[in-house]
């Protein structure tokens, strides 16, 4: 098995303890940080995504893979940021749980999956008012804003947040995409409140955003 295939397999199998050493070994063998990321680690995450979609991997296993990816990035990121390795992040995602809702499990999972798939993530926390979302978007200028709600009773706050983002003119140029998700949220609800996208689960959300930004 090639070094890159081994790295991909390690991500898939969640070899948390070994991955840093494997990445260092790959670098020592002369592979570039970009190659290691794109042709090794990301390939592993792609397999994880496919296996999860096929109900062949359980969420704790997926999370272990994502944590393994985070470990690998601890070694790679300084090299990638040196400039000679021109690997761009796939996009910037701003995440928050809407006003009145202080649940963070789903959002944390989504954050982990975005990071593991090469996105820069800004997590602005829980119980975030529509205005605070607007302010954070102006400050961080993300490509995508993700709204989370766990409670049926806080879904109206999600609608108010989307409305506030639109009213502030932040969607006028069509660049900023709004994606919503959470246990009671549906695709129909996403349409009703004028969100751009709906993510059924964390990995689905990542796939939807990948396609949106690619398109």
């Amino acid at each position: 098995m090639s070094i890159l295939n081994e790295l991909a397999k390690s991500i898939e199998e969640g070899k948390l303890q070994e991955i840093k050493e494997q990445v260092s070994h790959a670098l020592a063998e002369g592979l570039s940080a970009e190659e290691i990321l794109e042709k090794g680690l990301m390939q592993g995450m792609d397999v994880v995504g496919k296996r999860f979609a096929a109900e062949d991997m359980f969420i704790p296993e997926v999370m272990l893979s994502a944590r393994t990816m985070h470990e690998a990035l601890l070694v790679l990121r300084p090299l990638l940021e040196q400039g000679d390795q021109n690997v761009k992040m796939k996009g910037k995602v701003l995440l928050g749980t809407v006003e009145g809702d202080i649940h963070d499990i789903g959002k944390s999972l989504v954050e982990m999956m975005f990071v593991a798939n090469g996105f820069e993530v800004v997590d602005i926390g829980e119980n975030i008012s529509p205005q605070a979302f607007v302010d954070a978007i102006k400050e961080h200028k993300p490509d995508v804003v993700g709204l989370s709600a766990l409670l049926t009773t806080t879904m109206p706050a999600m609608a108010r947040t989307v409305e506030a983002i639109s009213a502030a003119g932040l969607r006028d140029d069509g660049r900023l995409k709004v994606i919503v998700g959470g246990a009671p949220v549906t695709e129909e609800f996403a349409r009703e409140i004028n969100a751009d996208y709906y993510g059924e689960n964390a990995l689905d959300g990542v796939e939807v955003v990948k396609q949106a930004l690619a398109g």
Binding site: F52, F58, I59, P60, G106, A183, N201, A202
Partner: peptide
Amino acid sequence: SMDMLTGRS
């Protein structure tokens, strides 16, 4: 109980 395949409660 959380469905470990989908995350749904």
